[in-house]
Design a protein around this nucleic acid. Sequence first.
DNA 1: TCCTTGACGGAGA
DNA 2: ATCTCCGCCAAGG
Length: 106
Amino acid sequence: MALDELSRQKVWQVVAAIPCGKVASYGQVAELADLPRQARAVGKMMSQLPKDSRLPWYRVINAQGRISFPFDSEGYQRQRERLESEGIEFSGERINLKHYRWDGLA
DNA sequence: TCCTTGACGGAGA
DNA sequence: ATCTCCGCCAAGG
């Protein structure tokens, strides 16, 4: 990844723009930040986010509508709690993207 | 250097 | 629904 500064800023801007109650996938964020097919780079950046970040990192999930942390991990718990507190409901381990996927613009 | 490893994703089988 | 295989690409062994 080691994306340049400009790219990183774009990614943060996109993440910050995801509205409450909506979610976006890593790939979607990458695309909206003009980094097509760089989903992994986005995931990498997320993993390096400081724990006290104010960004709504938890609104970014994978394209399958699942949280990208092991089910039994603390990260999974933290992310799921925040999403549910915003009114997002889970069907087992998954989120119904038909209802919660953020439409980048339109 | 080569190989593996990721908060990933889409196409096939 | 599950499982490979392949892009993608920097980091660390």
